[in-house]
């Protein structure tokens, strides 16, 4: 029997096809389009999703049901001794909290990580967890390490419009106050728990530049300097891959020594921020893996 399994949810942006090669299992997040339930990457593609989103369909996300979660855990525990479960940030969803409750009945065999990650930084922690497991760390140790590192990441997201965020009600008052008169591109940030307003830009060029400066500053002042040895640089986008690739070239020029990972944002994040969003993130590498 293998020792530690790593499980995450589809908010990590890890697709079902990618999951196998990374050695991770992915729990699909359920969401509802016009009252009908779908599972990300299982019963709905990105294309179908954006079509529905742009068509102003009524889209809701939901936590995975307890039944769904426990079924998967039970099945995985047939092959593995322990599970490290890395759900999306507890600041953005209640699924972490629910999973912790469910895990109480598993006598420590399921370790639910509350590491405040989402999207590309959550993905990176999954990869880190696999590497830690390979090094022989147990599930509880891995959870402790990942939770210790929870604030050593930073995400900036520029939205094309505030429309979807307002519509979903997932917006702090500060962010809602942005750009009531002029059409502005909000730049949001995720630092640990919550999504908040960081700044605003008049044009996407301004916003992109602003995010590069912000990441640079975080690296310099919070994460010990601009070094690819210590820091991962990640990017994400919703829907517009071409724009994302072109922005990636700009980010690469600003940080020439880094290998940049670019991934689409998960659909359950996308449905709150809409198409055309660009994100840059950085997270610290884990000392135990260096």
């Amino acid at each position: 029997m293998k020792k530690v399994a790593v499980l995450t949810d589809s908010n990590s942006g890890i697709t079902q096809s990618e999951a196998g090669s990374l050695g991770v299992s992915v729990l699909p997040m359920p969401f509802y389009i016009n009252e009908k339930e779908y599972f990300e990457d299982i019963t709905l593609t990105q294309e179908q999703f954006y079509e529905a989103l742009k068509g102003d369909a009524d889209i809701h996300t939901s936590q995975p049901s307890p039944e769904q979660v426990m079924k998967l855990w039970d099945r995985m525990l047939e092959d593995y001794e322990e599970i490290v479960y890395i759900p999306m940030s507890s600041g953005l969803s209640g699924s972490c909290q629910s999973a912790r409750m469910l895990a109480e009945d598993y006598e420590g065999r399921v370790q639910v990580v509350n590491d405040q990650r989402i999207s590309v930084t959550q993905r990176q922690h999954c990869i880190d967890a696999v590497a830690l497991a390979e090094k022989g760390f147990g599930a509880a140790e891995i959870r402790e390490i990942l939770e210790r590192e929870k604030y050593s990441s930073s995400i900036y997201i520029m939205l094309d419009t505030l429309y979807y965020l307002r519509k979903g009600g997932r917006i702090t008052p500060a962010a809602a106050a942005i750009g009531t008169m002029l059409r502005l591109k909000p730049v949001l940030t995720i630092q640990g728990e919550k999504l908040d307003a960081f700044a605003k830009a008049r044009t996407s060029a301004q916003g992109k530049n602003m995010m590069i400066q912000a990441i640079r500053k975080d690296m310099e002042t919070r994460f010990g300097g601009i070094s690819p040895d210590r820091i991962n640089l990640e990017m994400a986008y919703t829907h517009d891959k071409e724009a994302a690739e072109s922005y990636k070239a700009e980010v690469q020029a600003a940080f020439p020594d880094f290998d940049i990972v670019l991934n689409p944002l998960s659909l359950s994040v996308s449905c709150h921020i809409g198409p055309g969003a660009l994100a840059v993130a950085c997270s610290c590498k884990i000392p135990e893996l260096m």
């Binding site: 002029l182 700044a199 830009a201 301004q206 602003m210």
Partner: peptide
């Protein structure tokens, strides 16, 4: 002036 006001970032220092 509008551009300057837009580019103000509350979390940054005055110098920045």
């Amino acid at each position: 002036g509008i551009t300057a006001a837009i580019n103000f970032v509350p979390d940054n220092t005055n110098d920045e």
